[in-house]
Amino acid sequence: MIPNTFDYQRASSLDEALGLVGTPGSKVIAGGMSLLPLMKLRLASPERLVDIGRLNELRGVRQLPDGRLAIGALTTYSELADSPAREYGLIRDALPDIGDVQVRNRGTVGGSVAHCDPASDLPAVLLALGADIVARSKRGEKVYPVDGFFTGAFTTALADDELVTEIRLMGPRDDAGSAFVSLSQRASGYSIVGVAAVVIKEGGSAITRAGIALTGVGEAPYRAKAAEAALLGNEGTAESIAEAAAHAIDGVTVAGDIHADSEYRAAMAVIYTRRAIEAALVRLHE
């Protein structure tokens, strides 16, 4: 389990990194928790690794003046779980189960976003939160709304020469509740079905905003917009939750593999969406 030969260059500044990103045969590496196993299996054989792991300007979680959280792309899962983002219930649910201790200490949120594994959990969390993905290239900075960023299996809207630098989340708020629930494939721990749910009641007893995102089910993590729409204007009764959950896979070609075929996965998507919404509402009402 030895990679093919490769060149290695460690970027000492963001500018240097941006000069190398997207050059032929190059691949960016941060924590390496997804890329290195692929290289060892020789499923990926980049000619050159561009190591951005020492770019401290991409680290750290800070609060923006408008109350949003800005999370540096090199923030590890562990760091994110310990940061102010832990106010969010779905962060507290999802982060401790990602990978294992080593993955959580080395894997980065920017890497997770750029890699877009169809069964990875963080993209679903970000979709439910309605995050923004900030990317930089030599051409400047671009902000991508997360909705529409994950376009397919291991495919994002990023241009070849762009680097994810920051993720921006709405600030924690009292009128929101969130949860992440999942059914995992035992061997790898990846989600067969993972559902992130955020529900917001601005002012009254009815749900005014909802973010429901699923991973493991489709070609890429996605927002279940029909499910969200079905919740709006409801208080969150059992009937309305079930009605919303029934739309969890509208328009989605449900994946299947040796662990869970598409029939089972589809059934679990509905059940786990219901459970995620229920758990988010419990937290909202606490």
């Binding site: 035992r186 061997a187 040796i258």
Partner: peptide
């Protein structure tokens, strides 16, 4: 409860690593 070796009909071992074989 967890472990099973899975072959495709073509004889390829689909549970070819600990990512798919649940110890």
């Amino acid at each position: 409860l967890w472990e099973t070796a899975v072959y495709g009909d073509d004889g390829q071992l689909l549970s070819g690593s600990m990512m798919d074989y649940a110890l």
